[in-house]
């Protein structure tokens, strides 16, 4: 077990600049205690991926990341053979070796390309690796079924080399943006936590710790506007990442205070779709600055 208590988790995360609230700290602690994967869901940009990174950092253990995408299949997540190297080897060995020795030699370790799942399972320790399975909702159902199998046994077999079983079960963090519902069985295997946008107080803390040199009163304004913006049903609501981007941009521009013009000019840091930028223009930056998420005179 890596953490003694929930508070220990919070402290260790804080040392790494991550402000973990109690539900998150408790979930990390229990995942560690029970040896279960964590499934984090929430809007894009609330810091789900960051949890795995900080976890790896605080435990001083490698972060092994599996980015999911449509069409991801078992081969590219466990292992592949280095075919080019194998063929080269065959060419050289052709003259001297028998089929059996060739078979043994080209399906050996040196021709094996380990992919994230195998890497995580074969991690030598002493502390378990952190395995981040990012945006699992982007992969398809077939892959989920396969993942479920790996997550229950933590073993995979490579026919030519045998079965590998994890000596140190990795700490697994799955994230999902919820573009579709995940398989029930997979969800039941995990501890679940929905991560919301941070409260203004927490977001202020985050900005101040991540964007050194920024004016506290500007941060106050930025965070206020972000919270107003999140009430508007944009196609893509801005996350914490956008707050940080925007803060850095404003710092770079030498801004001391937000004005409607400045909000319009820098809207691209916060809103990533043309429709959304237009929507903001409709509502008016001055209204947003005043904390209004709807144009009042339009009613």
């Amino acid at each position: 077990m890596q953490f003694d208590s929930v508070d220990a988790v919070r402290e260790m995360f804080a040392k790494d600049g991550y402000i973990a609230d109690r539900p998150l700290a408790l979930t990390v602690y229990l995942a560690n205690l029970l040896g279960k994967p964590i499934l984090l869901e929430g809007e894009a940009g609330v810091g789900k991926t960051e949890v795995a990174k900080v976890l790896a950092n605080t435990l001083d253990t490698p972060l092994i990341r599996l980015q999911c995408y449509e069409g991801l299949d078992a081969n590219s997540t466990i292992y592949e053979w280095n075919h080019a190297k194998q063929i080269l080897h065959i060419r050289i060995a052709e003259k001297q070796e028998s089929v059996e020795t060739l078979d043994r030699s080209i399906f050996g370790e040196e021709f094996l390309l380990q992919r994230p799942l195998l890497q995580a399972i074969r991690h030598p320790g002493p502390r378990p690796a952190v395995l981040l399975i990012d945006e699992v909702d982007r992969a398809d159902e077939e892959f989920e079924a396969f993942l479920l199998e790996v997550l229950s046994d933590f073993q995979v077999s490579v026919p030519e080399l045998g079965t590998f079983r994890a000596a140190h079960r990795p700490i697994v963090v799955l994230t999902s943006n919820r573009t579709r519902e995940l398989n029930d069985a997979l969800k039941r295997r995990c501890l679940y936590l929905w991560i919301d946008y941070p409260t203004p107080t927490k977001e202020r803390e985050i900005v101040l710790s991540r964007v050194p040199g920024i004016d506290a009163s500007l941060v106050e304004q930025v965070v206020g506007v972000m919270h107003t913006l999140r009430e508007i049903d944009f196609f893509k609501r801005p996350g914490v990442a956008e707050t940080l981007d925007w803060s850095r941009a404003l710092l770079g521009l030498g801004a001391r205070e937000l004005s409607p013009e400045l909000v319009d000019e820098t809207a691209g840091c916060v809103l990533k779709y043309h429709d959304d930028v237009e929507r903001l223009r409709e509502i008016g930056a001055d209204h947003v600055l005043a904390g209004e998420s709807e144009r009042s005179e339009a009613r």
């Binding site: 208590s5 929930v6 109690r22 539900p23 408790l26 979930t27 602690y29 229990l30 205690l33 499934l39 869901e41 519902e181 029930d184 969800k187 039941r188 995990c190 501890l191 679940y192 936590l193 929905w194």
Partner: peptide, 21 residues
């Protein structure tokens, strides 16, 4: 593993195990 005197920890521990969305 948790401090049962903290009611909120008790709730969160149950919830993270039993809820999936």
């Amino acid at each position: 593993g948790i401090d049962l005197r903290r009611r909120d920890d008790f709730r969160l521990a149950l919830r993270t195990n039993l809820a999936s969305s």
